[in-house]
Design a protein around this nucleic acid. Structure first.
Lengths: 343, 343
DNA sequence: AACATCGATTGAATCGTTTCAGAAGTTTGC
DNA sequence: GCAAACTTCTGAAACGATTCAATCGATGTT
């Protein structure tokens, strides 16, 4: 049960390897008769040429980069990927997308895979929780493999393109304060993202810069996955009396916000009449949510473009470039999920 | 400006290629001193090992398949990809996703890329319009490269996993007829999909099986991209008097349905009061549309799983397997965008 | 009949790594 | 003091295709 090579085909067909190669590459120097015979033998032996060996000799021309996102079903990431693709294509690169699905093993596996397959560089949305498993990133650095991260990772110096999360949440909180809200809570995201921590910090900051007092129980960890956030939201409200409800929630992201909206509907809590909701990201569907979502817009395509630009610059450089860190600003988009309240 | 190889590093560091290789693979047979020196030289020369050559000798172990979808921002496709990933992972395969973005060139390029990079097989959502550019599929067949299509392609015999589009639309039309509608139109999709044609056919069939008469102008080609469908819908209604409006629209897919909903809102046409809308696919967001969408559900994850199963079976077979064609059934999901009317 | 031409095929060199048997040098055991 | 064992390193073979100069036969030309 050994692998079938071009040699086996050549032998069986009674020709040389060169001829088989010529057939496969559709060169017109082969007699039709020979060609047909070789094709037949290829089929007969079920010969699958190894692309890798092909490329080695002929010097792998294709330009191609990869991106590792966390969730292929979250539009935030696919929008970033679109930005990457646009820029990459303009420079003649193709884009391969993979999704770690919040799994360290997958992230690790893909980063190796990219290097192994001669994909020229990678953009990585890294998982940051757990015991900071980042050896795979060091491995990439060792072999001078170009990559750009979409979140800060402690303990490694690398190119990063990200958004100013702290400031984003600050904007959200200040907007709510300006609308007269004081009982504001932050429904925080999963520990697997550095955004979670940065956003919590922004929330704290907003209070310390205001006259209102911050209390620890204003931070509620409910995750960002659909069912998880939905369930946690139900719990949160069922556990407390109506007069202790917050008047506004700052969400971790728009996916979570949707789960919260759904849960609140279930609980007969009206948005924005009873509670104001403010999201994060501004994914394309946010504006058609059951209640069109007020949210903090991250320029997703631009994130992608900037990351791609940085990556390709590194790929095409013949010497090591200094590490860069790009932080993009955000913008509050006011829709219908928030309202001003009387005091 | 030639490429730097392991040999250059070895020479510069005053060691053999074998030693450099050992350093890169973190083998513990290298003296720390030597290791550090080699690493330094690697950095100095900015040496990037060619993964391809690596894999050649060491016999490429990684199991990995690819999928070419049409639009990475349409949840229908990412849901399919998720199904593929789940099955693939269970069999030890990783998944690489690429998006042709409705571009023949890209589709072609990716199919080559997959073969070249020793990705074991591919699932392809093929573009079918234009002068049926399918040479790249024939090329794959020639090298016995395993692949599965997600739509029928005329002129090639290949594995296909798809849904019964004709029947899907029939269900939609019959449902509407049962609700008392007779002025029903079909807003058809783009020519780049074989689904478009099959769905039109299903629409025709539904009428021929009923007492109602089919008229050509019941088929309106408006595409499926957001802005395109939106604009075409506006045009369609602005061009005709109110009493010639249809009472129900069968949409090509849910993406198009959203654009139509948006356009109708703009036109102050109420859904479902004035017009019933029925979608196709049942993407995850369909239930939270401004008007929760009645739609024909395609089991997206199952499509992915079946395709993956078929693909991997072909990959792991040592001989050519007979071509298979899997057609999955659909289900009507009634929500709020349709209503019964009096006659 | 000798020579040039052309089409089809061959086979050895090549791509850039990994692998591993064995050499060289060093330490341990007795 | 010598063999055995261990550590570190070397160098040539191998991976499986492509490439291209050289060859071979057949055909055409004079």
């Amino acid at each position: 049960m050994k692998k079938i090579t071009i040699e086996d085909v050549a032998k069986r067909a009674g020709v040389s390897k060169g001829t088989v190669s010529a057939v496969m590459n559709a060169r017109n120097t082969v007699k039709t008769e020979t060609r047909d015979h070789v094709l037949e033998v290829m089929k007969e032996l079920h010969f699958r040429p190894q692309g890798i060996a092909r490329n080695l000799r002929s010097g792998n021309q294709d330009k191609c980069i990869g991106i590792i996102i966390k969730d292929v079903n979250y539009p935030f990431y696919t929008a970033i990927a679109t930005g990457v693709r646009d820029y990459a294509n303009s420079k003649g690169y193709s884009l391969l997308i993979t999704s770690s699905e919040n799994n360290h093993q997958s992230e690790k596996r893909f980063s190796q895979l990219f290097a192994a397959k001669d994909i020229k560089g990678a953009i990585i949305a890294p998982l940051v929780d757990g015991t900071a498993e980042i050896e795979h990133l060091f491995k990439l650095k060792m072999i001078n493999y170009p990559f750009v991260l979409l979140e800060d990772v402690r303990g490694i110096q690398a190119n990063v393109v990200t958004i100013d999360n702290s400031n984003a949440i600050k904007k959200a909180v200040k907007y709510l304060m300006d609308c007269g809200h004081s009982r504001i809570v932050h429904f925080a995201g999963p520990p697997s993202s550095s955004h979670t921590e940065e956003r919590i910090e922004g929330f704290r900051h907003a209070f310390s810069e205001s006259t209102l007092a911050f209390k620890e129980d204003m931070i509620v960890s409910i995750g960002s996955r659909q069912e998880e956030s939905y369930g946690n939201t139900l719990n949160y409200f069922r556990k407390r009396p109506r007069n202790e409800y917050p008047t506004a929630i700052v969400c971790f992201n728009d996916q979570q916000a949707l789960a919260i909206l759904t849960a609140l509907k279930e609980l007969n809590i009206r948005v924005p009449d009873d509670i104001s909701i403010i999201g994060n990201d501004d994914i394309s569907y946010a504006k058609i949510y059951p209640v069109p979502l007020t949210t903090i817009r991250a320029l997703q395509r631009e994130i992608g473009q900037r990351a791609a630009e940085l990556l390709i610059r590194n790929i095409e450089s013949s010497k090591l470039l200094p590490v860069e860190r790009v932080v993009l600003e955000t913008e509050l988009i006011a829709r219908e999920s928030t309202r001003a309240i009387m005091r």
